[in-house]
Computed example of a mutant assay.
Amino acid sequence: MNVIALVLAAGSSVRFGADKRRATLADGRSLLAHSVARARAVFDDVRVVLRAGEQGEDFGLPADCRVIVSPDAASGMGHSLAVGAGALGDSQAQAVAILLGDMPWIESATLRRLADASSASNIVLPRHAGQQGHPVIFGRNFWPALGLLAGDEGARAVVQAQRDRCVVVEVEDAGVLLDVDTPQGVM
């Protein structure tokens, strides 16, 4: 598998009311540490985008987990995604899986299946019960477009502009839809 993982975790957790990345799950790990561990179980290279002044240790991430700092994280997910995509230049991967740091329940088998469907020239979208989910995997050909993103929209514009290059993978894994927006969602 020649896919790198980029975990976006530079958001401000406004709806959560506190820093949800630090919220503790039942196994004692932080929400972010759990999400990163899920990615590391499948992908050899996992990078995490954090806000300026933060370090992986702040969230219980492994010491060898590469952190990318998003200085303009407050301006929206697009900025963080652009910084993350810009930091992939040293990777030989053919695709990048964009994971969200608040989605800790995606199954390893699902991540493998999505990665297996990826190539340098396509965008892989998981769909469960008729709804598009995460992660989205972008072939290397689309990395320059990701590097131009700004604002709070994320990569939706890239996906919409490249509909003919999208591959939808139907999955039985509800984890591709489940994120944590409130403290009750951590339970």
Rank of each mutant, 00 (worst) to 15 (best):
A39E: 07
R40V: 07
R40H: 06
R40N: 04
V42K: 11
F43R: 04
F43S: 07
D44E: 14
D44T: 09
D45N: 13
V46M: 10
V46I: 10
V46N: 08
R47I: 08
R47N: 08
R47S: 08
V48Y: 12
V48S: 12
L50E: 08
R51S: 13
A52C: 00
A52D: 14
G53M: 05
G53W: 04
G56C: 05
G56Q: 03
E57S: 15
E57F: 00
E57W: 00
F59Y: 15
G60E: 02
A63I: 07
C65K: 02
C65N: 02
C65R: 02
R66E: 14
V67E: 05
V67D: 05
I68N: 03
V69W: 03
V69M: 04
S70H: 06
P71K: 10
P71V: 10
A73E: 02
A74P: 00
S75C: 11
S75K: 15
M77L: 15
S80K: 03
L81S: 00
L81I: 14
A82P: 01
A82S: 14
V83A: 15
V83M: 12
G84A: 07
G84E: 06
A85Q: 09
G86Q: 08
A87Q: 11
A87E: 13
A87N: 11
L88M: 09
L88T: 03
